[in-house]
């Protein structure tokens, strides 16, 4: 019997699984006892599993993140929730300078296997300080893994594998995906080390790479792109650091064309990284056209609805870029 699963429900399932099966797991963060901070993704978990394992906190991103790391160093596999990426930046020392380096600087004698759930919550006229995603910032840091699921099954399975991994992981889920529905393949226990980019649909003419919400946008453009007479091969990155390039390289070798869509700014971003790594590896003669990227406009997020329409990535911009490439 085929079953559907909603992205937000999938995250909820992951938490339920972890709380039921792993005593070394707890989750902490602002708003966990409130119905609206994290949508349906954690509904009533505190009631089912108790307030000592689903912990709401004072307004102290830095100390709470540091405490999560401290717990991870001393035997737990905890997850700290940041209901908005923007506020997580208050904890940046602990994530970037402590957790990411802990194993290396202590010569592999210790580690900080905490997971930082960074929720991307933007649009709706929320403005410059309630709209950032910043995945490429985090992906820049050796020692941090960055996971960004598009598919609901991934939202569940990669959340579990992020928590159970022995490394610090930034898990970024986008609220724009919460109501998306996938065919439920059932919970799968994956080792994060084995997770690679995934080909969502195959095609011979153009490789389009996305991550998180942009994968959905690319898929939404597929019919229209086909009408242009080209079949796109759509690749979901899933993990932004470290990136396994094999699948992408093979695809571009086949198609000779590369478009990267990244829901963040272009400068020093994931799209730049993917294009650079692919062009460094492949012989220039295989390219039928210049690689391209579609990213956010290079400005802080605006508030006015009219400006938001231009700021965020639209279907039209993806189609326009596709036309230029082919």
């Amino acid at each position: 019997m085929s079953k559907q699963i909603k992205y937000s429900k999938a995250i909820h399932e992951a938490f339920t699984y972890l709380l039921e099966n792993h005593d070394e797991f707890f989750v902490i963060g602002q708003g966990l006892w409130s119905p609206w901070y994290v949508g349906e993704t954690m509904k009533d978990l505190d009631k089912k599993f108790g307030k000592s394992r689903v912990i709401d906190t004072p307004v102290s991103e830095l100390a709470v993140t540091g405490a999560t790391i401290g717990a991870s160093i001393t035997g737990f596999k905890p997850l700290v929730v940041h209901p908005r990426v923007d506020f997580m930046l208050l904890a940046i020392d602990q994530i970037v300078t402590q957790a990411a380096k802990w194993r290396h600087m202590f010569g592999n004698n210790s580690s900080a296997p905490a997971t930082f759930r960074a929720i991307i919550n933007r649009g709706g006229e929320q403005g410059a300080q309630h709209s950032q995603s910043l995945q490429s910032w985090f992906a820049h840091i050796p020692g941090l893994k960055v996971v960004m699921p598009y598919d609901a099954n991934d939202a569940r399975d990669l959340l579990i594998s992020s928590v159970l991994a022995d490394d610090p992981v930034i898990f970024m889920d986008d609220r724009w995906l919460y109501d998306e529905v996938s065919f439920d393949k059932g919970l799968k226990l994956l080792d994060l080390k084995d997770v690679k980019p995934e080909i969502i649909s195959t095609g011979d003419d153009l490789t389009i790479v996305g991550s998180g919400y942009t994968v959905k946008q690319i898929i939404d453009c597929k019919k229209e792109i086909s009408k242009l007479g080209v079949e796109p091969e759509i690749i979901d990155l899933r993990i932004l650091n470290p990136i396994d390039y094999n699948i992408i390289l093979k695809s571009v070798e086949k198609t000779g064309r590369l478009l990267v869509v990244d829901g963040d700014w272009s400068s020093c971003g994931i799209a730049a990284e993917v294009i650079c790594s692919v062009t460094e590896e492949l012989n220039p003669s295989i390219f039928k056209s210049k690689p391209m990227r579609v990213t956010l406009e290079n400005a802080p997020a605006p508030t006015s609805k009219v400006l938001e329409e231009d700021y965020y990535i639209s279907k039209e911009r993806i189609i326009e870029a596709t036309k230029k490439i082919i």
Binding site: A67, Q98, S110
Partner: peptide, 23 residues
């Protein structure tokens, strides 16, 4: 359990070790 030179950085980490002991 470790020392680091970023001033104050181990204070919340030690607090988290306290949370471990408490849990």
């Amino acid at each position: 359990y470790g020392s680091v030179p970023i001033v104050g950085a181990t204070i919340p980490i030690a607090t988290g070790a306290g949370l471990s002991i408490s849990l």
